[in-house]
Design a binder for these strands. Structure first.
Lengths: 205, 205
DNA sequence: CCTACCGATCGGTAGG
DNA sequence: CCTACCGATCGGTAGG
């Protein structure tokens, strides 16, 4: 009986590990990329952390760069999806900016490790992926800029420099993974609330 | 005569190059560290950029890490010196915060490449240097936090979270090297002015 | 998933 | 500042 239960458990875990191995590789790599940086993390480091040989990683992943690309593009998607759904019912510029900031903070605090890799390691992607990536980033920034320019036109915001304010807002939020602790002093909602208030008060008319 | 002049010029240049070679190595390394990251920049990359052999670098510098340390600690010093002199004649909290931001922006825009390395590559220093570095960073942040808490006590600033506001301010400024172009649209003074206004308006009572 | 291995490249040294 | 070289390590492949 005991043997059966153990065996079942074992099989279930094995299956789970097998199905989730690629994700597990990605997750472990994310942690190492954040801690040591992409270039300074070797496939042998990653293998050791996973308890397997370096060569074995290549049964699940075709290259080191593929791991990085998956992290970066998954996060890009999450930022876009979140922004879209959070802006769905907003038309007032102040609400829109607030929701855009909250959306961004939510994504960042939900997965700080992946966010940190996303923000700091993207330049190590190859030229092709890099191009797509930078295009997406530009599109995302454009959303923020259009919110700002809309608010200025309506007189809700004063005449700030759009590029400067957008950069200022996003870089503040993007740095959150560097200090945010999941079980720390601040909840994601509290951070989002305080940061958005500070920025909106800073540019309101 | 011509030979003499040429010889003198040659000697002078040689001397200058010799005296300045270490600085030239540092400067070129800074550029590469910013573009590719410390770990992904090899001593052979650096040598090629300098037009010499990799082994020759070691006549001027004892290791790759020494270059990184020199960049990081030189910048740390500049941030402290600038802050100290800029705060010398300020006592009002609002002025102090404004001057602290202006000071920081000045240092960052004066040498964006070194600043970028300072902000992004410090973690590749060895444990000993890293310890000193993090201590200095903490001290520097403490200055900003004391300005904020002073302003809150006097009722000049509203009751923001000090850690959050400090992080928010510094990360905005620290990201400037990522987009700032020396001959670009914005002067350092203009950036400093706009950023400090936005932040101060965001936390003023 | 492992063993065995590849060519390339790494930071750095010896000796001139 | 160069030539010649070191041991270590890199990302990745072949074959099982």
């Amino acid at each position: 009986m005991l043997t059966n239960v153990s065996l079942l458990t074992f099989v279930r875990m094995e299956t789970k590990v097998k199905n989730g191995r690629k994700q597990q590789i990605e997750q472990t790599a994310t942690m190492l990329f954040q801690k040591k940086g992409y270039a300074a993390t070797s496939m042998r480091d990653l293998a050791a952390e996973l308890g397997i040989e370096a060569a074995s990683i290549y049964s699940h992943v075709k290259s080191k760069e593929e791991i990085l690309q998956r992290i970066c593009f998954r996060m890009a998607e999450e930022f876009f999806d979140s922004l879209k759904s959070n802006l769905a019912n907003c038309d007032n510029a102040e609400d829109r900016l607030k929701m855009a900031i909250i959306s961004h903070v939510k994504v960042v605090t939900k997965d700080p490790a992946s966010s940190a890799v996303f923000f700091s390691e993207w330049r190590h992607m190859g030229a092709e992926a890099l191009n797509d990536f930078l295009q997406m980033r530009e599109d995302y920034e454009k959303e923020f800029k259009s919110i700002l320019s809309g608010g200025i036109e309506n007189g809700i915001f004063r005449e700030v420099d759009i590029n400067l304010s957008m950069m200022s807002i996003l870089s503040s939020i993007n740095f959150i993974p560097a200090w945010y602790k999941v079980n720390g002093k601040y909840s994601a909602e509290e951070i989002a609330e305080r940061i958005s208030r500070q920025f909106i008060d800073g540019i309101k008319n």
